[in-house]
Design a binder for these strands. Structure first.
Length: 476
RNA sequence: GGCGCGGUAGCCAAGUGGUAAGGCCGGGCUCUGCAAAAGCCCCAUGCGUCGGUUCAAUUCCGACCCGCGCCUCCA
């Protein structure tokens, strides 16, 4: 059964399948602008796209996932200048950081990760096609603009009727829209090519219209064409990209190629609120992965918290939510351990589910998978998982293995890697010694000393957890 | 103003025309010298408000109230 997903353009639930005659499902996702560390809002979108890709793969599709790197724009150029380095060096630093965070968060690397700077010729070629076909014009300063009025159907994705729309004098950041700054024919027209300016420094490229650099929107059109073809199966991004970015991509691509149906399906994820407020630097509620790691949360806990709400609803990210995620994840691990025991598998065997017997069945997790396939309902799927893990069942080795087969596939789809919590931190010698002493006292039934030693450990910031046959020391 | 999303227990959050998944927190119990861990059990006559349709509505329709997003920086 194919995965069903809501499509922004048609506003309908539609099955995800490769185009007729194709065996690969092509998906293009707008990637990060690499001018600083990505924040958890960025990652929510990338994680959701990752879950979609994984779900399609578990469903049996061959997916080609393309996610770009935006490495030339105002912010990257300014950032490089402020850092007194080259654009290449600057964007490499932040691209590397992005990759490290992605890996920590369990994101599968896209199959292709094209960079805007590496696709200047393709962008120039597309702009040239648009100029030749009368969909773009060259301004006096050598910039090139897309002529929105020349594009039939412009606004079909975001359902905006530009003819009825009044041009706003400010954007949502309160900055004046620069409709008078350039010699555009219409305020709705957008830049395809920006002519070289002194403040661009060394960052310019040749073009038929003179030196300059590409506009923002054209890169995704050019790179999706290069790597996925004239039309492809799904395009994703944060909801804020719906207009104007994605709308402009459609206009550019369809006008340049003359072929409609740029992307068959549009996948937009809702934004993140932090502690009930819009995330912003000025409010100080903009978290990066490093910020949360510094607070003691693991990447998998962050990932869980970020997927705990439906992708089309905005998610209120809170530290309490991270605590909830930690407890919930622990509950899944404990339940999974019980299944592993019943199945006679080790944790390692579960972490790498290559065994035939744990790849063939869904066991009791079939309903959880069905829920996930229906518009990527991750919270519903998690609910099903907990229901099964808590339900009474006479497990046999065989049934437990079938359950594990289903659970492994679902956890792969969600990208939740179990049993990865950092192993016990190094225990200082003095703490270890106190622990050993208390254990000895307890064995000797000298409970007065044992209790005193427990308190001493607490004062040092350590908790001693007794087991039947030994003990663990945990930092509290 | 235009377009769109949402209001479900203390918090988070699914879902359905036939009477509310799940997680967290909380409470109880079992186990345990203590503590913790773990396991088990309990926890919304209620789904923003008011009307309507229906044998039956939280679920459909209408109105209203409230919150939020986008409308050329944004994931």
């Amino acid at each position: 059964m194919p995965v069903l997903l809501h499509d922004t353009m048609s506003r309908e639930m539609r099955p995800l399948l490769p185009k007729a005659g194709k065996s690969t499902f092509g998906m293009y996702c707008c990637g990060p602008t690499v001018y600083g560390p990505a924040h958890i809002g960025n990652f929510r979108t990338f994680i959701l796209q990752d879950v979609l890709r994984r779900t399609l793969e578990v469903d049996g599709l061959k997916v080609k996932h393309v996610r770009n790197i935006t490495d030339v724009d105002d912010k990257t150029i300014r950032g490089a200048q402020a850092a007194k380095t080259t654009l290449t060096e600057f964007t490499k630093t932040w691209t590397d950081k992005f990759h490290a965070d992605c890996e920590a968060l369990g994101l599968l690397a896209p199959h292709v990760e094209p960079s805007a700077v590496a696709h200047i010729p393709q962008q120039v070629a597309m702009i040239k096609a648009l100029v030749d076909k009368g969909h773009a014009y060259v301004s006096k300063d050598g910039s090139v603009y897309f002529k929105v009025s020349s594009c039939h159907g412009y606004g079909k994705l975001s359902h905006l009727d530009l003819s009825k729309r009044e041009t706003q004098s400010t954007n949502s950041a309160g900055e004046a829209n620069d409709s008078d700054e350039y010699d555009r024919e219409s305020a709705s027209d957008f830049a395809l090519w920006k002519s070289r300016k002194p403040e661009d420094g060394a960052n310019f490229w040749p073009s038929p219209w003179g030196e300059g650099r590409p506009g923002w929107h054209i890169e995704c059109s050019a790179m999706s064409l290069e790597h996925l073809g004239v039309t492809f199966d799904l395009h994703g991004g944060g909801i804020d990209l719906c207009f104007p970015h994605h709308e402009n991509e459609i206009a550019q691509s369809e006008c340049a190629t003359g072929i409609p149906g740029f992307a068959a399906h549009w996948f937009h994820s809702a934004h993140l609120l932090v502690e009930g407020e819009k995330m912003s630097k000025s409010k100080g509620n903009l978290y990066t992965l490093d910020d949360l790691k510094a607070k003691g949360y693991s990447p998998v806990e962050v990932r869980f918290a970020l997927i705990a709400g439906h992708y089309r609803s905005s998610l209120n990210f809170t530290i309490k939510g991270l605590e909830d995620a930690r407890s919930a994840l622990n509950k899944i691990e404990k339940g999974t351990e019980r299944l592993l025991t019943a199945a006679g598998f080790s944790k390692e065997e579960f972490a790498a589910p290559t065994k035939q017997e744990i790849q063939t069945s869904w066991g009791r997790f079939a309903p959880a998978w069905e829920v996930l396939q229906n518009d990527l309902n991750i919270p519903g799927c998690l609910g099903q998982i907990f229901t099964v893990l808590a339900s009474k069942s006479d497990l046999t080795t065989e049934s437990a293995r079938q359950d594990l087969s289903g659970l492994a596939k679902i956890l792969f789809a969600l990208g939740l890697k179990l049993f990865t919590s950092a192993p016990a931190q190094g225990v200082p010698a003095d703490v270890a010694e106190l622990g050993a002493k208390r254990w000895a006292a307890k064995q000797a039934k000298d409970f007065v000393s044992a209790d005193r030693l427990r308190l001493e450990l607490v004062e040092l910031g350590w908790t001693m957890l007794d087991r039947k046959d030994g003990y663990d020391l945990k930092k509290s």
